[in-house]
Amino acid sequence: MTSVSDPISEIEDSAVRELGGVGDSSQLEAWRHAYLGRKGKLTLVLRGLADLPLEERRSLGAEANRIKLRLEAAYEDQLARLEQDRLAKVTEGERLDVTLPGSPLPRGGLHPITQTLRDVLKAFENLGFQVVEGPEIEWDHYNFEALRIPADHPARDMWDTLWIDHERDGKRSMLLRTHTSPNQIRIMERTQPPIRVVVPGKCYRFEATDPTHEWMMTQVEGLAIDDGISMADLKGTLAEFARRIFGEERRVAFRCDYFPFVEPGMELRIDCFICRGEGCRTCGRTGWIEILGAGMVHPEIIANAGYDPDRYTGFAFGLGVERIALLRHGVDDIRHFYANDLRFLQQF
């Protein structure tokens, strides 16, 4: 008996002794391997039990299992202690200067006009408008004629045009669209009411540039046609848009304005958020800032589309995205947008 019990108590003693000297996790693993591993000392004892007579097996077995549980618990304790020591070392001795910059990642970004355009479109999408697009190089027909702006009409002066060097029947007929309004006609040609769309895109004018004028610009055209759409709906839609883009507390006002393809025509203004209506340079001392032009689609255009003008009415509007971006970001010169100065773009 003693010949068998002695080694087992020795194993326990030496295991406990050695565990006291374990200093890191690899030593701890080695210790576990030596005593509790598949070929560890205690494991071997347990495996040898089978060869012993029943009574011996029982007493020795109970003892060996007790030791096994004790050593396993000791192992866990030691493991936890080591982890604690390690963390203590890290938190004390290997502290980071948290004010140092993070590892460099490239920072990309969208152009401020893209950002504003997305917000504008999102506002209208939430009001049930769909986004569609059209060509930037257009026929005179869509850009002017079909919008009730025939050649030699004085309203043509409202849009100075860049013409493409192309003639049809001896006349210049192709141009860089001066506004997104040709899409009103294009959409009406291919769809039936109800219509509710917004059309974003670039437009071009023959224009000298200055802090408030740029020859390339981004517009959003809106068009809604249905049985029962009125100017009250137009006002409601635009007011809602202005609130979504410029903030809940903005006041909006409408005034009569003229565009040949709408009747009645209007302009939307918001109260100047720089001077709060007092009058300043941004608002031209009026207290109001012009945001967009709009109106009820001219009944002649409704009729030309093949819709019944007595039944169908609708509204159209057109807004300049640069102007909205200028106002939102407080940019003082519209030419910044397409000058693409890195120091400008990085701010957005």
């Binding site: 009001l127 769909q130 409601g236």
Partner: peptide, 20 residues
């Protein structure tokens, strides 16, 4: 005065989707 006229929101059917 346009500002004296009522303001309402669009009602009616939302048109069919045109994918782009």
């Amino acid at each position: 005065g346009y500002d004296e006229l009522p303001t309402t929101q669009l009602r009616g059917e939302i048109p069919a989707v045109q994918r782009q």
